[in-house]
Design a protein around this nucleic acid. Structure first.
Lengths: 109, 109
DNA sequence: TTTACATCTCAGTGTAAAATGATACACTAT
DNA sequence: ATAGTGTATCATTTTACACTGAGATGTAAA
């Protein structure tokens, strides 16, 4: 596999624009400190909304908003269980997270 | 290696907040379609500013602004060469890009 | 029931970042 | 020199998005 030589003089003014929408939407999700912190916290197992809010020093409804976006992206799942089903525990979809990482890799790798 | 069971009743209200600043700053760079497109284009070798602008349908100074941010992050390098050194060609720092991908992986993996 | 708690939804607001416009700089050609 | 390209910088406008506040929903205890 030959490495392309440094460009000399011919301008390529019709290069195709790459499609990076999948990568950018994924990156936008991770670009927020609260969402990134949530995903990082969930690596260690399910956590409920109030625990996340306490850890991050944010309000529950704010956390809930961010969780909704992660849910819509399919990166996390919600479920109620335990003695008090008022609480909602969130857990990561590890395969979806790996696919998301791969989308970012399409740009950086 | 035992898998932790789903949480039952004890609330953990003092969980530590993870440090995700490196991952979020990296993700913020990739969250913009122009910057992501630039990084993707540069996978195929050096490209100059006007070529990028033409491919993405954006103005040169806008591209230049985004390139400056990628430069500050160390993901790309600028160099002049060829017959007309007015043009500035940009190339990726592949190792820096892999490190950046790894930072994102710290959250998603 | 009623009250309290945990979470969700959503419209409104404030702020940070992207695009623009104007200008300056670097290099080439005449 | 002078004019013309290509790129960079920066102030300003514009736009997108995170946070807030208020209210709704679902569950548990009194």
């Amino acid at each position: 596999m030959l490495r392309e030589l440094p460009v000399l003089q011919d301008l390529r003014m019709t290069l195709p624009a790459p499609d990076v929408t999948a990568a950018t939407t994924t990156a936008a999700l991770l670009a927020d400190p609260i969402r990134a912190s949530i995903l990082r916290m969930l690596r260690d197992g399910p956590v409920c909304v109030c625990e996340i809010a306490a850890a991050l020093g944010a309000r529950e409804n704010n956390i809930s908003n961010h969780l909704a976006r992660l849910r819509d992206a399919g990166l996390v799942r919600a479920s109620r269980f335990g003695v008090d089903t008022r609480r909602v525990y969130y857990e990561r979809d590890d395969e979806a997270c790996l696919r998301a990482l791969d989308l970012v890799g399409d740009v950086l790798r």
